[in-house]
Simulated assay, not measured.
Amino acid sequence: MSTLHGNLSGNQRRKMRSAARLYAVQALFQMEQSGQTVEAIKGEFLNFRFGATYEGAEMQDGDVDHFGQVMDAAVNYQAAIDQATDRALVAKWPIARIDPTLRALFRAAGAEFRDKTLPPKVVITEYVDVARAFFPEGKEPQFVNAVLDHMAREARPESF
């Protein structure tokens, strides 16, 4: 945790970490679509999205450290995360065929499953909430829950 966040309440830190997860999914999506480097995308998000005012609404401030950790792990371990996602998906739907937002979400969550200090069930709950933010009317949150549950049980069987 950054020293700048030392005086925040636990609830404020949780909200900032949740915001960092949402930003990470957006950033991973943008990275895939634009072909920009992880450093360029992280810089853009940190300088122009975290806490910025956009169309009259103030964007949530995010946990900068957590955002960076998720982004770096998602990029550094993308091949392994994508393979784990493929194993969790139905055979007819490899990761390359799914919605790019979901692909970014699975990569971010997969990055967090690598962190042994985070309970997998917390990671699943957080990313199901992210799915609800992107797909408020669809069945995607249930799909995300099922895929992430499979991925978590594979990555961290001792937690179940």
Rank of each mutant, 00 (worst) to 15 (best):
T3L: 15
N11R: 05
Q12F: 08
Q12C: 03
Q12H: 08
R14T: 10
A19Y: 06
A20T: 00
A24F: 07
Q33E: 15
Q33L: 08
Q33V: 02
S34M: 04
Q36R: 13
A40Q: 12
A40D: 09
G43K: 11
N47I: 11
N47S: 14
F48H: 08
R49M: 14
A52W: 00
T53A: 14
E58T: 03
E58H: 03
V64C: 14
D65W: 01
A74V: 00
I81C: 10
Q83H: 12
D86K: 00
D86N: 15
R87E: 13
A91G: 02
K92H: 04
A96G: 01
D99Q: 05
P100W: 04
T101F: 14
A104E: 01
A109P: 02
A111K: 00
D115M: 02
T117W: 00
L118N: 03
P119M: 08
P120H: 06
P120V: 06
K121T: 11
I124R: 06
Y127G: 01
D129G: 09
D129A: 12
F134P: 02
F135P: 00
F135E: 07
P136L: 06
G138E: 06
Q142P: 02
A152D: 13
P157R: 09
E158Y: 03
S159W: 10
F160P: 00
